[in-house]
Write a protein that binds this DNA or RNA. Sequence first.
DNA 1: AGGAAGATCTACT
DNA 2: GTAGATCTTCCTA
Length: 189
Amino acid sequence: MKVLNKSFFERDTAEVAKDLIGKILVRRFGKKLASGRIVETEAYYGEKDPASRAHGRKKFRAKWKECGKTFIYMVHGNWLLNITAHEKGKVGAVLIRALEPLKGIELMRKNRGTSEILDLTNGPGKLTQALRIDKSLNEKSVTSKQSEIFIADGIKLKISSSHRIGVKKDLRRKLRFFAVDNPFVSRKS
DNA sequence: AGGAAGATCTACT
DNA sequence: GTAGATCTTCCTA
């Protein structure tokens, strides 16, 4: 299993978001691993993006400086998982919106309290529940196999794009990317 | 103290 | 498929 290195994340945020489709998100529990294929992402920019957490907030902009790190925060009672990714001198992060469960499915079932596989990780708040991701994993590097959370190379999937979901003030650009015809994508269009 | 935030679940038409 | 309650942390007053 090949782990993505830091340079992968040091590119334009939307490019990284698109390229993350088909990659494998791995969660380490000591020696045990749980994993899922990334099938849906969204790109968030900094000051020019009104929907971004970094918008108008110096504190976050400073934290986003380094690429390839987790950025986790709570919205409506759900933890959402982002990975910082941007070109040098810019600001941006990629939100992981949905996974296709690969390993550790039993564990995910337990964490989610449902046996329905399609319902385990088909949403940003759901996948963090399934993989037990919360604030304690904030600002961890995802570029090392030893990390509690990291991203490995995967396969190429057919990708489509759309506008972001749930944001009040979206940009004109389409910044959501998802795998075509994958049942784990949270929404069709 | 109050409200907003990248959502989810349930209960209906 | 839509509508409403509820979820928990952080930011602003």
